[in-house]
Design a protein around this nucleic acid. Sequence first.
DNA 1: ACAAAAAATGAATTTGAATTCATTTCTTTA
DNA 2: TAAAGAAATGAATTCAAATTCATTTTTTGT
Lengths: 209, 209
Amino acid sequence: MAYRRTERVQEQLQDKRDRILQAVRAVVSEVGFRGAQVATVAEAAGVATGTIYRHFPSKGELFAEALALNAGHEVSVMQAVADSEGTATARLADAVRVFALRAMRARRLAWAMIAEPAEPEVDAARLKSRRAFADVLQGLIEDGIARAEFPPQNARIAAAGLIGALTEGLIGPLAQDAEAPPNALSLSREITAFCLQAVSARPYEESRS
Amino acid sequence: MAYRRTERVQEQLQDKRDRILQAVRAVVSEVGFRGAQVATVAEAAGVATGTIYRHFPSKGELFAEALALNAGHEVSVMQAVADSEGTATARLADAVRVFALRAMRARRLAWAMIAEPAEPEVDAARLKSRRAFADVLQGLIEDGIARAEFPPQNARIAAAGLIGALTEGLIGPLAQDAEAPPNALSLSREITAFCLQAVSARPYEESRS
DNA sequence: ACAAAAAATGAATTTGAATTCATTTCTTTA
DNA sequence: TAAAGAAATGAATTCAAATTCATTTTTTGT
């Protein structure tokens, strides 16, 4: 016996794997999923193309894992805000504002994480993370209803609506090339205001058919 | 001279072109942009693959034209509702409800039209149509503010928010595999309620930083 | 220092789909 | 009905990118 995987090698391997995942993040931040090629990721990670395949079975699984990692982190940030002290209204405002500010700091990445279709494995991973975001908001809305801060409403629908509004308003196609690329602070303030308004309103009676 | 393009031929050509555009619609309804291949479209249109290229310069331009055609139609339907009689509230409710019902009748197509990334030309065409949808809603919201039916608010942001909420709630990933695929009528009613609530609410003072 | 085993490499291969183009079919006019 | 020109065809080509794999480099234990 002349070789055995030592702990040191084990760590180097883990490091390299992590560096590859970070490289995906960096590349996707630049060019989104659409433009992200395995060769580019390899270069960014400082390894050969073939090395990627010694750590991940396919492009789809690599990218899906990278997405799960990043989106999972954002979800826990949002969850932490949701679990903090204060009224449901304030916590919802904060959750939305924090999400908005972080997303705007890296719009391309945020859009890729939350909306941009890619390989099927990536889409599946995003579905999970999206539902996780929605669940956090839904919990917050239900809490607000229970405390009578918001009127009774379908919390599930409202949460989906907020996710959609955030996506569209912050990082969606319409937000991409706004004539005057608005500053992150004021945009996030306006989106937050919209989101609060969206859940707080008194309900309305249907008018015509 | 032994050949000249007669009017009859001209019409046949136009017909074939239209049939190809319709075939794109049909194929995209089934498999979205992701799964739509030129060969499949050709088959659906009953022509050879090469024929597509006698009518359109590239896949991207073909698909972009098909999108512009369909989305343009939906925009004018929404505009017609927006221009009808009644309070701004009622017209907004109707515009949203009509959009929702029509979208749900063909979810895959609707999602492709409004959200699914594809070739760059397609994305560009969608940007236009999306802005057109948003403009209709924005006009309606501004009207509602002017009539004091809605509180003052950033109509542009609110319109983007409504588009996002519609996309997410009706045809977005979360709506795709809802455990019990909810019936179109009740879902559209709930989304409509959310949208009205979203613009009608009294504004809220920011809480913490 | 050497042999055994693993890991990394990157050029070559594979793959899947868009696009082309030589050939065939259809239309028109004389 | 024949020749000229268009239009349609679909198999072959091109192209871009993922994946593979024979070769090289690194690591380990004796």
